[in-house]
Each structure stands twice: as C-alpha cells, then as structure tokens.
Amino acid sequence: MAANPATEATLDLSWLDLYDDATSAEPGKKGLTLKEINLGRYADSARGAGDMTYRMRGAIPRPGAQRFGPNYQSKADVWAENCLMLYEEATQRQWSSARDIPWDTLEPLPDELERAMCQLATMLTEVEFIAGDVPGQWMPFVSAQDFEAGLFLMTQIMDEARHTDVFRKRALANGGGLLAQGAGLGLRTLIEARDFTEMSVLMHVQAEGFVQSMFRMGELIGQTEADKRIFRMSAQDESRHLAFGVMHLKYVLDTEPERREEIHHYLDKAEGDAAGGGSGDVTFPPVFEALCILLGGGVDKFDEGLQKFLLLRKRQINEYVHRLTVAGLGDRRQRLGPLMAQFLDPA
C-alpha cells in the first residue's frame, strides 16, 4: 500500500480496505478491558516480529516506516502473562495522596517517634523516586508489539510518583521535616541494569519485594491512622509491581531456561551490593535505627524494636526466596549471601 500525497482532485482511500476481518470486542464484567480486546490477530499470542518502529501489534506495517533505534524483539524480553490484568487493576486502583489519606488524623507524636517516622519517610521518598526513573529508562525499548507490558510500566511510573509524593507529604505534615539522605541503599544497582530482565528481577522482585514486606508491617511501623493508610495503599500498588516481576521472571525461565545462570549472576551482584541488604536496603544505619524506634515504640524500647526489626528482615528474606521459588528460581535458596541466609527458614 502506498500512501501518496492526495490533492483536492485525487482520492487515495487505499487505507480503507486493508483488512477484511471485522472485530467487535464485547465488554466483560469489568468493562472493556485489555483482556477483551486481546483477540484474533490482535492478541499477544499472534505477535509477529517487531520492526524497531512503534507500530502497535496488529496494525498494518507502513512501507517506508523509519526505524526508531533498537528495541526488544523477543516477547520474553519484556513480557509477563499478567500484565493485561495488572494494567487494568492499576487504572481502577489509582488513589490520591492528597485526598485518600486521612491527614486530619495526624496528631503530634513524641519527638523521637516523629523524627524516626520522618527519617523513614526521607528514605522512602528517595527509593520511590528511583523506582519511577528505572521503568522510565526502559520504556523506549519496549516494543509496541508487547505494548501491554509498556502500558503497565507507565502505570508503575505513576504509582511511584504518588509514593514519592506521599512520603514527602508525610515528612512535612506533622511538625517534622526531612532528615538524613539515604546512602548505600542499593539503588545504583537498579539504574545500572543493562537488560530489562536484570532490571525487573532487581527492582520488581527484590527491591519492591523488600519494600512490600516492610509496608505489610505498616500496622506496626505506623504511629497514626494516616501512616498506616499510607503503608496499606502503597502496599497495594507494590503488589502489582511485584506480581509483574515474578511473572516476568517465570516467563523468561519457562521460555528461555538457558538464562537461569545469567539471572543468578545479577542476583549475586545485587545481594552482595548494598552491604548485603539488597536493593532498598533497610540496614542503612539511620533507617535501621528509625525502624527499631518505630517498631519498639520509642528510643527506650530500642531493643524491643530490634527484635521486631530482625523479624522484618526474616520476613523480607523468606518472602523474597518464596517469590523467586514461585517464579522458578527456587535454587536461589542455596546461593544467598550469608547476611541474607542467616534469616532463611529451613526449606
């Protein structure tokens, strides 16, 4: 099909009858979702070869289309079987840090607790900032043949923006402020990744997994109803990111099992970096101490908090290994570094 410049006198219309299959997706119980339009030649299962343009899957290639530089040509490089569902869930569950958090329930806390909460919020606003940049870095490489994975990443960018802002809001809403910058939080490994799967296993599975395990202890960490709601709402978002990562890893291991050792290699590096705490490291001293104070309920209950902190680490590590096992990387259990292995329950 040649799309020639048309003038008043001419009519091209060659685009009008390029296909003869009529498609009529029907809305389901949740409306017209990506699942309902994943049909026929438009389905991910009918994915053809990519062409380094941004042609959407199922669209007719345009002769003479220019390339846009390299992007992933293989579905396994970016795909997760749950990305259609996760995208729709993300759009349904967007929330507002301005209006969905009961800021009016904040009440003055003892100084040490407010400082500990502000220190934790300072660290988290940093972590979430990077968590938005990282998928952004990879978006240009996600082919429109796998656009649902790209759409999901764009919802993640939005989620992380909201997390970045909600923790900043928390630090500045209750008589406190931001405190010490995190350092050595293991965030460089996320931005250093040179492959999508490397990025995903480090960010979605490891870093967001650790953060998720912590958010799920938010009832213990949070000192006010607002704090607890922040952790609950954020955990809901993190669950999606984590689910994408686990299912992406599973897809890679199912379809390209030869990449297993390569993926171990990335994890060897990430578990070793950040002082053995992994990406989003909560063992960074100000964060560790802030968590012990919050979990214990004060500086004078630091040791009680320490015991709960150790439980948090135990939970983080065991859930991490469980997620890797679900994805098909159960042999990671034998390869964990000692600072993580110390918390591992027997198989």
Partner: peptide, 12 residues
Amino acid sequence: LANGGGLGLQAP
C-alpha cells in the same frame, strides 16, 4: 477493536 473494525495502517 470494539465496533466491527480493526487496526489500520500504522502511523507515519
């Protein structure tokens, strides 16, 4: 994809 059509020619 919802009303008896389909995707056409990719964008310029």
